[in-house]
């Protein structure tokens, strides 16, 4: 029998699908999403802080920022996670954090909160280093004239940043940020190595216990796919709201089919004005240059 056929004969889809809603798996999904969201948020804030540190007039702050970025982008995330976990006893945090009651009260099982915290810290610090680059690219893409105009009106640097530059920078930062979160959802699986029962941890635990590792890995994959796919839609929605997506306006009109296939039509003719007038009354006629695009 060819290998594929024998594999398919062995592989038990029932187990794979039925495990999708096992309690430990669902708990794992929640933990994965929570780790991803918190780490991404923290990482973004760290990245923003690093931006201002790098631009500080106080030179040691700049060194600190550069060293931080160099280190966290220069060492593997897995190593950072292992380091954070193994450092816990030296910080005296192992015992106090081992099994915080709040989680068991919420109905979670097999929670090792010390490992979760270590994983969270490592993920956040690591993400911060990468977000620093994204934030820098976003803010630096804003024309310097914006800040100059803000300053000339009497705004301080902080006001100019907060009200003028950062809102515009967000438009540039959001697409790569969405991409980073997509990665983060999957990268959280690394905390498996320090014993966190995230989605992968749960899948491995059940799979190894029942000698059905392959099936449970498929279960986990289905969940990862579901999460990243849903995030894809959310990301598209957010990009539309922030006008971050550069959509050809011609593609917005037309039927669903035409939009999916990328068929663009001619723009609709302007509605006829009463009495055959060329310009609507009360509105300044377009300049000779035509409408500004």
């Amino acid at each position: 029998m060819n290998p594929i056929a024998s594999f398919l004969k062995y592989f038990n889809w029932h187990i794979a699908v039925n495990s999708l809603f096992a309690r430990l798996i669902l708990q794992g999904v929640i933990i994965t999403i929570s780790l991803a969201v918190v780490s991404q948020l923290a990482g973004t804030l760290i990245g923003l802080a690093l931006y201002f540190l790098r631009r500080s007039r106080f030179v040691p702050f700049r060194w600190l920022a550069e060293a931080y970025i160099w280190f966290f982008r220069g060492t593997p995330l897995l190593v950072q996670i292992l380091f954070a976990y193994n450092a816990l006893p030296y910080l005296g945090l192992s015992n106090p954090l081992r099994n915080l009651d709040i989680f068991t009260q919420l109905g979670f099982v097999s929670i090792y909160t010390d490992a979760m915290l270590a994983g969270l810290v490592a993920l956040s610090l690591n993400e911060g280093a990468y977000m620093a680059e994204i934030v820098r690219a976003g803010i630096d893409s804003i024309d310097i004239g914006q800040m100059e105009a803000a300053k000339s009106l009497g705004m301080t640097y902080a006001q100019g940043m907060r009200r003028i530059v950062l809102p515009q920078a967000m438009r540039v930062i959001i697409p790569p940020l969405g991409n980073e979160f997509n990665n983060m959802l999957k990268t959280t699986s690394l905390v498996y190595v320090i014993g966190v029962y995230d989605l992968l941890g749960a899948a491995k635990a059940i799979g190894d216990f029942s000698f059905r590792t392959l099936e449970l890995l498929v279960t986990a994959s289905i969940w990862y796919l579901a999460m990243t796919t849903v995030w894809g839609f959310v990301q598209a929605y957010i990009e539309r709201k922030f006008n971050a997506a550069n959509i050809d306006p011609a593609l917005r009109e037309g039927s669903w089919w035409r939009r999916m296939l990328g068929i663009r039509g001619r723009p609709a003719p302007a509605p006829a004005l009463a009495g055959g007038a060329l310009f609507a009354p009360g509105v300044e006629p377009p300049s000779i240059q035509g409408d500004r695009r």
């Binding site: 024309d143 803000a150 300053k151 009497g154 705004m155």
Partner: peptide
């Protein structure tokens, strides 16, 4: 900033706040 607030400046490239 206080002194700048009493001086208005108009730039060659407008520098209007795009958002």
């Amino acid at each position: 900033a206080r002194m700048r607030a009493q001086i208005g400046m108009v730039f060659q490239r407008f520098n209007l706040f795009a958002h």
